[in-house]
């Protein structure tokens, strides 16, 4: 009967939300990001990787804080007699000298710059390019999606190392920008696919329909509603991929087609160090440890971020 629905009028007008703790000021609510931050601070994986990355970034910005030696000035009297002296912390001969008589420790410190620059910039550009392609393909769908997805497939089909070799050998100078371009050229497809899938999911939400029925423009729907809600998986993939790009730079430099002297880079040093593996293994192992630690730090960061942003893992 109709009367059963006539709940008292007061009940319909003043239900207040359960006051969350201190209700004095309209508190800035806990968004997904603040929730994630809350989670991250408690995660030892994140803390370790964050400390490593901060040290690395300081190394990039102020290498002279870590060593007074120059990475490019060699004293040939040290050549091969300069075995590492592991008790001399932060000294010029902490990790010994290389074949040119240059301080290996200084080269480990200064090599961070090229490596991190490549890793961070490639990740940034890949996220922008791949994100835009994925956004356009996922949002508009239809033939636009078909064309963009097939182009993505074509790029995805190029073997990573082979493609990078082809690009890099056509440019003779091995500087940072050429390497970044090569990695961007081959790396954007992964992000584009993730972004497309994420956009397609978000596009079907009721709040997107609501914005459409209000008459919102395509740009508003894309950047106010879809991007903020679709960006989380992209960030996760990008953070994890960052370690991969650093490893790729080292690989390409090792193969002699990435960065080259006089650029100071870990990959270049690993490549140079392989010749003396039996007599002076420190020349190879020291920069290799830096690559491993950096890649590990970024992959751990990516893992921690994924766990924090993925509500299903809570």
């Amino acid at each position: 009967m109709t009367e059963t629905l006539n709940v008292s009028a007061s009940a319909s007008t003043d239900p207040k939300p359960a006051p969350p703790g201190n209700d004095a000021k309209p508190a800035k609510g806990r968004s997904l990001w603040s929730d994630a931050w809350h989670d991250l601070r408690r995660n030892p994986l994140f803390v370790i990787s964050a400390v490593l990355i901060v040290v690395l970034l300081v190394m990039v910005a102020f290498p002279s804080l870590f060593t007074s030696a120059s990475p490019t000035v060699g004293d040939l009297t040290h050549h091969y007699q300069g075995k590492p002296n592991y008790s001399h912390f932060f000294a010029e001969d902490w990790f010994g000298y290389d074949t040119q008589g240059r301080s290996v420790w200084a080269r480990m410190v200064y090599g961070a710059r090229a490596t991190v620059l490549v890793g961070v910039l490639v990740t940034l550009f890949v996220t922008i390019l791949g994100g835009l392609v994925g956004l356009v393909a996922g949002y508009f769908g239809g033939w636009i999606d078909s064309v963009l997805s097939r182009i993505t497939d074509i790029f995805q089909g190029i073997p990573f190392l082979l493609g990078a070799m082809v690009v890099l050998t056509t440019f003779t100078e091995g500087n940072v920008w050429v390497v970044i371009t090569a990695l961007l050229f081959l790396g954007w497809t992964q992000i584009a696919r993730v972004a497309r899938g994420s956009v397609i999911t978000v596009k079907q939400s009721d709040y997107v329909h609501a914005a459409k029925s209000l008459g919102a423009s395509t740009a508003r729907i894309m950047f106010r509603h879809i991007v903020p809600n679709a960006v989380a998986p992209v960030i996760v993939v990008a953070t994890t991929a960052l370690g991969g790009y650093i490893a790729a730079e080292a690989t390409l430099s090792y193969l002699g087609i990435g960065l080259a002297e006089p650029t100071v880079s870990w990959g270049v040093d690993v490549s140079a160090g392989k010749d003396g593996l039996r007599t002076a293994p420190h020349m190879l192992i020291s920069p290799a440890i830096m690559v491993s630690l950096t890649v590990l730090a970024f992959i751990m960061l990516g893992d921690a971020v994924r766990n924090a942003l993925d509500p299903k893992s809570r």
Partner: peptide
């Protein structure tokens, strides 16, 4: 169309997906 949309509005079924969480 934008002008007509002003006069016809919608209330959605699921209050958990009809509001942008961000």
């Amino acid at each position: 169309l934008k002008a007509v949309r002003r006069n016809i509005q919608m209330v959605f079924q699921d209050p958990y997906t009809s509001l942008n969480p961000r």
